[in-house]
Design a protein around this nucleic acid. Structure first.
Length: 494
RNA sequence: GGCCCCAUGGUCAAGUGGACUAAGACACCGGCCUUUCAAGCCGGUAACGCGGGUUCGAAUCCCGCUGGGGUCACCA
């Protein structure tokens, strides 16, 4: 295979959603697998629809996912510029070639006229199609239109007979009857190129070897193939990957909850998990594994293992994968990822000192195996940072109302208090508590459950002795005292 | 509606004519473990859309139907 050159070409009309992200990922994996080039091109020809911040947002989502590009509108490259709004000169040149060779013609129909024609056809039950009426406009007719001040659009004559076959790498040969092809507009009356034209000119000029894009573009492809041939460009391979659908099998949109990559980031998902999940949506390496590192994905990725059918995305499985990464990734990585969440909650200062970081490390290690997202990790850590929590009501009824509970807690407090610093470890504190339990002749739970509630306010969480050692002696004694006082106070009121 | 694509459990999917009384994963349900909750381990429920062919034999090939999706712009 010649050098692989693929591109991801988003339009800056919004944030990067997971469908786009997966298309970008497949392109990237394919390029990396073959040692090829991955290009980021901005399709911003419709100035009216461009959203200022969108390009920046798309870019940052891609970077967050770890999808980097070799050529692009920010870093340049041998076939730049990579922003279509900066390539209008090229499009006009190429359009002129078509006009001069008689393959294109000016069309003076106004949008209103075209809409009326379409409506008329629809009412007659016909397929709305442009009738090429301007194609045989005489010089006089043209002059008359121009005198009327109409800015024309440039159309390309499409073949009217025969068929155009799209050779798609995952779908095989897909035939389209040429009679269904409109004379498409390639230059709008404002002088700008249309999508189909700019796309073809750029894919040709940028020597794209494989056009890997979503399936919704399949029906554009025959028109683009005609353009490729008219322009004399080498045809790239076409690859139309299946769509990602919402749980109700409809096209993904905002109303389906989080669909933007950025929402997953703020929702506490790791890029490792999202990349892994997205790679497995519509592609399968076979076998029984579900977890793959980025390097493994690159090594295993292959277009012929991409499925043909659309996939419904399932946030539950993504959540599971995220939890897997949360507990298996090196601790430093998880800590690094959770830092902004902790800072936002006020648990961590803007520039934490080593002691703060050490504490955070221990908190994360204690909590990370029982949560699914960074947001959950932050929430499950709250009591490590705030001593003034409320006690869970259900736990209070269950563990703080037992007769003698204050006495038991007091004995536990005493035991911890008596422990020398060197013995304030998971083993040491557990041994101390076990001894209290034995001396009192009560069940382990009689001390452990109220103690957990006293220290964390919750009935669920890490092992008690992990909580104790992370909190440290001083906090434990304080919190135990607070709980004992609270229970006695309640008893008086009762 | 025309054209195009697709069709294995609720979801992601393996499967490329015999090894399929159809893998694995998520979710769900049970059990074990256990100081709680997770995690982990063990087990369970659950699928080839329908109808015709072809073939000794079909989830796999062909046709039709049904269903889902995409697309029909001077949007991309």
């Amino acid at each position: 295979m010649d050098t692989v050159r693929v591109r991801f070409a988003p339009s800056p009309t919004g944030s990067l959603h997971i469908g786009g992200a997966r298309t970008a990922l497949f392109n990237w994996l394919f390029a990396r697998h073959h040692g090829g080039v991955f290009i980021l091109r901005l399709e911003d020809t419709d100035t009216g629809r461009n959203i200022g911040e969108a390009a920046v947002q798309i870019e940052s989502s891609l970077r967050w996912l770890g999808i980097g590009w070799d050529e692009g509108y920010d870093c340049g490259g041998p076939f730049g510029p990579y922003r279509q709004s900066e390539r209008f000169g090229l499009y006009r040149e190429e359009a002129r070639r078509l006009l001069e060779s008689g393959r294109a013609y000016w069309c003076y129909c106004t949008p209103e006229e075209l809409a009326a024609q379409r409506e008329k056809a629809r009412r007659r039950g016909e397929v709305p199609r442009y009738d090429s009426r301007c194609g045989d406009l005489t010089g006089d007719g043209r002059r008359a239109k121009e005198a009327a001040g109409i800015q024309p659009a440039l159309r390309v004559k499409m073949p009217k007979a025969g068929a155009t076959v799209v050779k798609d790498l995952i779908r095989g040969e897909v035939g389209f009857d040429n009679a269904t092809l409109d004379d498409i507009v390639i230059l709008k009356s404002n002088g700008g190129p249309t999508y189909n034209f700019a796309c073809v000119v750029d894919d040709g000029a940028m020597r794209i070897s494989h056009v890997i894009r979503a399936e919704e573009h399949l029906s554009n492809t025959p028109k683009q193939i005609v353009l490729f041939n008219l322009l004399g460009y080498a045809l790239p391979e076409f690859v139309h990957v299946p769509m990602i659908l919402a749980p109700d099998r409809s096209k993904l949109s905002k109303r389906h909850g989080a669909t933007a990559v950025d929402e997953f980031r703020t929702g506490g998902f790791l890029p490792e998990a999202l990349v892994n999940y997205l790679a497995l949506l519509g592609w399968s390496p076979g076998g029984e594994r579900e977890q793959f590192s980025r390097e493994e994905l690159v090594a295993f990725f292959s277009l012929d293992a991409v499925t043909k059918h659309a996939a419904v995305y399932d946030v539950k499985k993504l959540t599971w994968l995220n939890a897997q990464y949360l507990k298996a990734l090196p601790l430093e990585r998880v800590v690094e990822q959770v830092r902004p969440f902790m800072q936002e909650a006020g648990y961590l200062s803007a520039s934490p000192d080593p002691a703060e970081l050490d504490y955070l490390n221990r908190v994360v290690e204690a909590v990370r195996s029982r949560i699914h997202t960074l947001v959950e990790l932050r929430d499950a850590s709250a009591y490590f940072y705030r001593p003034d929590f409320e006690y869970e009501e259900k736990g209070v009824r269950k563990h703080f109302t037992k007769p003698g509970v204050t006495g038991i807690l007091a004995r536990g407090r005493e035991a911890l208090s008596a422990l020398p610093v060197g013995r304030f470890t998971v083993e040491g504190t557990e041994e101390a508590f076990r001894q209290v339990i034995e001396e009192l002749g009560v069940s382990g739970g009689a001390l452990i459950h109220p103690a957990r509630l006293a220290l964390s306010g919750r009935t669920v969480g890490p092992g008690l002795f992990d909580i104790i050692t992370v909190l440290g002696k001083e906090q434990c004694l304080l919190r135990l005292d607070r709980a004992i006082a609270r229970i006695e106070n309640n008893l008086e009121q009762a």
